[in-house]
Design a protein around this nucleic acid. Structure first.
Length: 276
DNA sequence: ATGGTGGTCGAACCA
């Protein structure tokens, strides 16, 4: 089963490019981020015509995630638990960043968790150097903590699952062309990397790292300053696998060539092949 | 380089 994640940066602007890539890559399941669309405005017919089932969790203008799957999407849930009472006025009821569903393959089922983690910039700190409560950076770290709690709950089931999407996180220096340019950025600051390491330390496997450990593989290049032409990229889209899913991993690749096409997203797809 | 680019949506916000 081929499962992909792709931050498309707006379904309206990317519908054609997404259809082209689906025809070429033929993934069984796709996790989309930044659809930037209300559910009722998502062009689901385009994907149903290609044989996909479609589930969206959208909002107007910003964020928004979706799942496409050739096999049925079962037990769909929207939103990450624990959003109530957040210090910032955009708990999970406001920002659409998380969706889950179960897909059954020939050899068993897998829980698919699709996520769009908050960017977290600008980083605001108190005079003591800790994140300002209620700031975007604080919201990012709290969202990370909620994701960790969800991962713990799923791990307790000892069944295959994966958490994939735009983590807005550079795990290590070798995941950026110019790590020195990101040291104070919310995508690479110590608190962010610590939160990601806490997540993987629970027992989740970074699929790209284990299959293709070479540095210099990126999933995002900024639109500005010819970043793609200079390969000035970062690896921030990740597929994390539960132990039961990691045992089925046979491949993991980044489709970087999509970034060179006309009107590309600033992210490119990352996919895993699982023997499920 | 208080810009540089792009999406959404029609001014400003987000990345």
């Amino acid at each position: 089963m081929k499962i992909a994640s792709f931050n498309i940066n707006g379904i309206k602007a990317r519908a054609g490019a997404l259809v082209d890539w689906l025809k070429e890559a033929e993934p069984d399941v796709v996790i989309l981020q930044e659809i930037k669309s209300l559910d009722e405005n998502f062009p689901r017919d385009l994907f149903e015509d290609l044989g996909y089932n479609v589930e969206t969790h959208g909002q107007k203008s910003f964020n928004g995630v979706a799942l496409l799957s050739k096999r049925p999407l079962e037990d769909v849930t929207r939103g990450l638990p624990g959003g109530a009472g957040m210090g910032r006025d955009h708990g999970d009821d406001v920002e659409a960043r998380y969706i889950e569903a179960t897909v059954s393959g020939e050899k068993g089922a897998i829980r698919i968790c699709g996520l769009y983690l908050p960017n977290g910039n600008p980083v605001e700190l108190t005079p003591e150097g800790t994140p300002v409560p209620g700031s975007k950076y604080d919201f990012k770290l709290k969202w990370f903590a909620r994701l960790e709690a969800r991962a713990k709950a799923l791990l307790a089931l000892e069944a295959p699952f994966l958490m994939a999407g735009d983590y807005n996180l550079i795990p290590q220096p070798e995941d950026a062309k110019r790590p020195e340019a990101w040291t104070e950025d919310a995508l690479f600051r110590l608190e962010s990397r610590t939160a990601f390491r806490r997540l993987t330390a629970l027992g989740l496997t970074d699929a790209l790292r284990v299959r293709n450990g070479a540095p210099g593989l990126y999933t995002f290049w900024d639109y500005q300053a010819g970043a793609f032409q200079k390969n000035d990229g970062i690896r921030i889209d990740h597929v994390l696998l539960s132990p039961q899913a990691a045992d089925r991993l046979t491949d993991c690749q980044i489709d970087a060539h999509t970034r060179a096409k006309d009107k590309p997203s600033d992210h490119v797809p990352i996919w895993v092949e699982l023997d499920i």
